[in-house]
Design a protein around this nucleic acid. Structure first.
Lengths: 184, 184
DNA sequence: ACTCGTATAGTTCGACTCGAACTGTTCCAA
DNA sequence: TTGGAACAGTTCGAGTCGAACTATACGAGT
């Protein structure tokens, strides 16, 4: 009998349910590994949440929790019907919360910092980031050329990576425009 | 004697300090009004934080807190030297934390939602938002054409609004590209 | 076989954050 | 003169986060 503690489900909750559905059986660490560098660009989840949130979801009946008897005694999660249904309902609804951006650099400039200094530093960061994501994406593409055991998974990650790269490129363009409007 | 409870200062803390510096004397409600629709695009601050955070900052010596004797008994804040120095030090440092984006729509698509449905709905939202911001910006520009009592303030807000509009436009472009890549 | 370093895996804690819901105040028009 | 809308402020508890820490596994060199 699943419990109905009627907890609130956030985007992060659904992210956890979705990742568990994807892996079938997953430990918190698996979840963390899955999204590093891909989904993380659009929906950051601190790693501690992957330990806390599944426990919450299991208590409310969306997941089942098992613990390995020996070794690291890791907890392994699987979706329940209730979890699957909640996830499907949420995914089917095309409405989504407005995107939210947190940019400390713009805040600094708003509070009087020198735009060239702040945006200049930021520029380099985006370039580095793009490099990382591209390298990662290449790796995935290479894997996709071989045999595809987990093809679907990799394709989703590739799409997220491509979108992430597009996002950072756009940001770079915007920054360069700002920098051009300023200094010499 | 200012207390040194050595609290952690987040971007939001500095935002509060900066807004108080800007206004000279400010109530929480003033702060909230100041950033609605402008800074909010890059550094969202829930309104309750404008009640809690200044209290925290005052306890640690960054602000002084006074309470109106009658009426609404509002609390009024002013910057201390300690607060001013902390703010200046932070603003002078060109390094800033990486921008962070939260986009539930992309999350949904990542988890298997229909991209056209999700992005289509989102598209309209951005258009509405741009309209609002543009109307607001026009208002500010009109005010700037008149006499400028608080000119500096308004210019900062105008800049933030312009950047916000640019951001949403860019997002719109990206969404349209995604929608074009999909079906008809 | 052993042991040291590194990578992997997991947890605890407390401070902070957030939003829902509520209360109180002021203003203004009917 | 009173009732409703807009304005202003607060409370509360659940949720979120990151720093710091512990523990386990693996592997290279000895």
């Amino acid at each position: 009998m699943t419990r109905q503690d009627s907890i609130r489900l956030s985007g992060t909750s659904y992210a956890v349910l979705g990742l568990v559905r994807h892996l079938g059986r997953a430990t918190p660490y698996d979840l963390k590994q899955l999204i590093a560098e891909s989904l993380d660009n659009f929906w950051p989840v601190p790693h501690t949440t992957f330990y806390a949130e599944p426990t919450r979801l299991a208590a409310a009946g969306y997941l089942v929790e098992e613990q390995e008897p020996g070794g690291r005694r890791r907890k392994v999660y699987e979706l329940t019907d209730q979890g699957r249904q909640a996830l499907e309902r949420w995914v089917a609804d095309p409405a989504s919360a407005a995107p939210v951006l947190h940019d400390e650099g713009v805040l600094k400039v708003f509070l009087g910092a020198d735009p060239s200094a702040v945006f200049g530093a930021r520029r380099d960061w985006h370039e580095t980031k793009i490099g990382e994501l591209e390298r990662h994406l290449e790796g995935i593409r290479f894997a996709l050329d071989g045999d595809p055991p987990n093809r679907g998974s990799l394709e989703g990650i590739a799409a997220a990576l491509a979108a992430g790269i597009a996002f950072h490129r756009t940001y770079l363009t915007l920054l360069d425009e700002q920098l051009a409007d300023q200094g010499p």
